[in-house]
């Protein structure tokens, strides 16, 4: 099939960006969307022009590198699918496709379709873990965990950290991303000792990184390639509220005892 691509080109973080038009022919319907961009880049090199920069690595929907919106939707039109797993059979001859980087205040554009998502790492660094040193673990089957809870923890932990939720949210909120990790660990006995501190630290970091607030648009869940449920945001809110109250009470308790 033959397609018209409008691709966002931006030389660097400070430069003014804009869409460039490219005609691309003989695209196989078995190709992936990124292979179509490969074809474009091949042609650009052959004509001595700079290639389109885009993040990609595993190309099987699990590393979370993809960071492009296709016709305005993060990862494109297909539900539960990353851009690398989007195949051209979802398009037809003559289609016009706009490709641009994920847009969010907390994800500045680095070049073309590449954005800086390091804020996500910093949210995780603030508390997305169980503080267990190597070698300090008890026997794995010492604690039974209800299957339902373990399965639910897995569903929350399936987040690939791509940032589609942020790009889809009108507020650029990272609530779904943060909620997924908070819920994963809140559901497990291993996550309990640090549960309060974790949610407070992660939410404060999220705010400091310039992500917006959640106003229940639900776009994040729609855009998530791994089907992370918006219900985890209510779990996050519950944990955040109870932890905030607990912390305030414990501070007051300390003051009274002084």
């Amino acid at each position: 099939m033959n397609l018209t691509l409008f691709v966002w080109r931006q030389k660097n973080a400070d430069a003014q960006g804009g869409f460039e038009r490219y005609e691309i022919s003989d695209v196989s319907e078995d190709s992936s969307f990124l292979e179509t961009l490969d074809m474009l880049n091949l042609r650009l090199v052959e004509s001595g022009q700079p290639t389109v920069a885009f993040e990609h690595d595993c190309r099987e929907g699990i590393c979370g590198s993809c960071s492009m919106s296709i016709n305005g939707r993060p990862h494109g039109p297909k539900k539960l699918t990353t851009a690398c797993q989007l195949h051209m059979r979802n398009y037809k001859d003559g289609d016009v496709i706009y490709v641009e980087p994920f847009r969010a205040r907390a994800f500045p554009v680095v070049k073309d379709l590449v954005v800086d998502r390091s804020a996500f790492d910093r949210i995780q660094q603030a508390g997305g873990y169980v503080s267990v040193n190597t070698g300090a673990a008890p026997e794995a089957n010492a604690n039974a965990i209800e299957k339902d809870k373990a399965d639910e923890a897995f569903d929350a932990a399936a987040c690939i950290g791509c940032g589609a939720c942020v790009a889809a949210c009108p507020n650029g909120s990272a609530m779904l991303f943060t909620a997924a990790k908070v819920t994963h660990l809140s559901l497990l006995p291993q996550g309990q000792p640090e549960r309060s501190a974790r949610v407070l630290d992660m939410v404060h970091t999220m705010d400091a990184e310039m992500f917006g607030g959640c106003t229940n648009h639900g776009e994040c869940q729609e855009a998530c390639p791994k089907g992370i449920s918006i219900k985890y945001i209510s779990q996050l809110n519950r944990d955040f509220l109870s932890s905030t109250v607990k912390k305030a009470l414990s501070l007051r308790g300390k003051m009274q005892s002084q």
Partner: peptide
């Protein structure tokens, strides 16, 4: 054997049986 212990302690959500065991 220690690897499995370590990963479970970190909160890695391995598949479990209805008994709650791995």
């Amino acid at each position: 054997v220690s690897i499995i212990d370590q990963c479970v302690a970190q909160g890695v959500p391995f598949a479990r049986e209805y008994s709650g065991l791995l």
